Amino acid sequence: MQEEIWMRIPGFDDRYEASSDGRIRSNWSNKQRVLGTRTTDAGYVTVSLRCGGKAFTRTVNRLVALAFYGEPADPSYHACHNDGDKSNNQVSNIRWDTPSGNAADKLVHGTNWQLNKTHCAQGHEYTPENTRMMKSGGRRCITCKRADSNQRYRDQCGDSFGTHKGKKLTAETIAAMRDLRAQGLIYREIAERYGVSAPTARLAILGESHRTA
């Protein structure tokens, strides 16, 4: 069994230390006491610290990383668990890594709670056709993304949204516009051909709000 090593945690006036076994202790007036911990709903182990008359709650994995590896190369870095077990805060299991590196860990370990969801917050199913993978490792519902984009167009166009000088779009016109889009024309080019605004052309092609004759 390896000997437990204690290192000072920077930033707390030399009052706290972290151990290689993932324990935190106070060191006030030469009196050392191992601190009790709490576990968050997300599974992270935390401790309460005091410094400068203020109380702080910090995760143990980050304190261990600070004590043994120093400040991260970038403030956005995460203190990652190599094995995916948030309760295992031994120094050998902790490393600094980028947010994307942490997200990749969660994919490998199956601990990304977002990826365990079958539907988005609006109730749309995460099917392969309705899912966009993000660089962070998360997912975006394509249906919701389109709805957000359409709402932005509505906000920009105000009360005139859906028409251009009262012009109505027939079902045949919309079908023709969709054919042009499939051929690679951009919305602005299609809109100019039919005398409507680009937002109106876009939403008609996508099957959203528009006036038909």
Rank of each mutant, 00 (worst) to 15 (best):
Y153C: 11
K135H: 05
P72F: 14
G110Y: 03
R62P: 00
S209C: 13
W113T: 10
I186V: 14
T127M: 10
C80Q: 15
A147Y: 06
V108G: 00
T170S: 15
E3N: 09
A18Q: 02
S149T: 15
W6R: 04
K165T: 09
M177Y: 04
G158H: 01
H210R: 15
Y126Q: 06
T143H: 07
D21K: 15
D85M: 14
I205D: 11
G22P: 07
G184I: 05
K168A: 13
P199M: 10
L180S: 07
R38Y: 15
Q32A: 06
S197M: 11
K54E: 12
L206D: 12
P72L: 10
R50W: 05
W113L: 12
T59I: 12
D179S: 04
R181L: 05
Y77I: 00
R152I: 09
G43W: 00
G43T: 12
F68N: 11
T37E: 06
T212C: 11
A65G: 07
A42F: 08
S209N: 15
V108C: 01
T200L: 07
L107F: 04
N27A: 14
E129A: 11
D148R: 10
E129P: 01
S19F: 06
R188S: 14
I190M: 02
I5V: 15
D14L: 05
N130W: 07
R132A: 15
V60E: 03
S92R: 12
Y153W: 12
N88Q: 07
H78K: 14
N150G: 10
R95E: 15
I142G: 04
R140G: 02
C80F: 10
S209F: 14
H81A: 09
E17A: 02
H81D: 05
R58Q: 13
T59L: 07
K167T: 10
T163G: 00
R25W: 00
Y187G: 04
G101H: 06
C141H: 05
M133H: 15
T46S: 01
A198I: 03
A65I: 06
V45T: 08
L66Q: 00
L49N: 08
L185V: 02
E208K: 13
N82I: 13
S92L: 11
P72R: 08
A79Q: 01
D83F: 04
P99K: 06
L35T: 01
C141M: 01
V60R: 05
V47D: 02
R140V: 07
R139T: 09
K165H: 11
C51K: 13
T59S: 12
G43N: 13
A204H: 02
S160P: 01
G84Y: 09
I186K: 15
A171L: 11
K54R: 11
T170R: 11
R58M: 09
V196L: 04
T212H: 09
L63Y: 11
K135S: 09
A213K: 09
G36C: 00
G207A: 04
Q114Y: 04
V47H: 00
L203C: 08
A198Y: 02
A104S: 10
K106V: 02
R188M: 08
S20K: 07
